[in-house]
């Protein structure tokens, strides 16, 4: 199996090398760096990361890959610097927060470790590994539930120069429960709209996700289910867009997959976000669309 894969990896490496030379993009650099590292070319991978950082300084992923290389190579201080930059560039970088938390936990800086773990929970609620780690560090079962709310500046952080992540929090409220915590103070936000959507008859749950399948907010869905739904919805969204383009159109506004025991509906706007709704088979999309569009409007305003 490994022998069969090797030529494919080589050709992919070659393709990416050509791509970064001719049409460079941050994602191509990052993929190239990952593949080079997997293939054992650590120096080449680090060089690809540095080129990516030079050409695309706003991209956080290259800092994470470089930090992983440096951490493995024992350059822990350099790695931490890059991880801090990574979370500044991308406050939702799960890997960067996890690595920082791990580093601080090992260094005995428990409060800083907890801070990064709790920041993860603001965009990846109920992540079992993070919750387990928080409980392990605090020694209190259930303490992970007291995660810092989103849009609340992390207090006294010597490691983060940015006050708080710009991401929107994720919770799983019961129907009719408190508004989601990412709403701007005193204003309604996408959380309210998602909850209103979930109160519609036949709606099992809903979420807002970006084009890469990352959950921005959700309501009524279990933690594992929301990630799965967002990932699958991103794939269908991409396939639907291709189908729409094949008939000469540019913009995808909605898609629906209706099956015998349920349906998934997605609504888009100009933003790269979709509201994805999991509903009973017979639910009519018209009312859901109004609620979903409101959630997207609120998201834009948040």
């Amino acid at each position: 199996m490994r022998d069969e894969r090797k030529p494919r990896v080589e050709s992919e490496l070659e393709r990416l090398r050509k791509k970064v030379e001719n049409f460079p993009s941050a994602s191509a650099y990052n993929r190239l760096a990952e593949l080079m590292r997997l293939g054992g070319d650590v120096a080449g991978a680090a060089q690809a990361c540095r080129r990516c950082i030079k050409e695309f300084p706003r991209n956080g992923q290259a800092y994470v890959i470089l930090a992983e290389i440096e951490m493995t190579g024992g350059k822990k201080e350099d790695a931490v610097k890059n991880l801090i930059t990574a979370v500044e560039r991308d406050p939702r970088s799960y890997t960067a927060h996890r690595m920082l938390a791990e580093y601080y936990a090992v260094s005995g800086k428990v409060s800083q470790a907890l801070q990064h773990l709790r920041l993860i929970l603001t965009f990846k609620a109920n992540d079992p590994l993070v919750m387990q780690k928080i409980e392990q560090l605090t020694g209190k079962p259930g303490s992970a539930a007291t995660a810092a709310p989103a849009n609340t500046p992390a207090s006294g952080s010597p490691t983060l120069t940015r006050a708080s992540p710009t991401v929107i929090s994720v919770t799983q409220p019961a129907k009719g429960s408190e508004p989601l915590p990412f709403n701007p103070p005193g204003k309604s936000g996408p959380g309210d709209s998602l909850q209103a959507l979930c109160r519609e008859t036949g709606v099992r749950g809903a979420l807002i996700a970006d084009e890469k399948g990352r959950v921005v907010a959700s309501s009524g869905l279990a933690a594992g289910q929301e990630d799965l739904l967002a990932a699958l919805a991103a794939e269908i969204g991409a396939a639907s867009l291709m189908a729409i383009k094949a008939i000469g159109q540019e913009k995808l506004t909605t898609w629906t997959v209706a099956a015998s025991q349920g349906q998934v509906l997605a609504f888009k706007r100009d933003q790269p976000f979709s509201v994805v709704v999991l509903a009973e088979p017979g639910v009519r999309p018209a009312m859901l669309e109004i609620r979903a569009r409101q959630a997207l409007i609120d998201l834009g305003a948040a």
Partner: peptide, 21 residues
């Protein structure tokens, strides 16, 4: 999607743009 979310057999799929679908 149907398999992972246990939605059963797909009946229809609709993708819509501004000018039809």
């Amino acid at each position: 999607l149907g398999k992972h979310l246990e939605l059963g057999a797909t009946r229809h799929v609709h993708a819509a743009g501004d000018q039809g679908g």
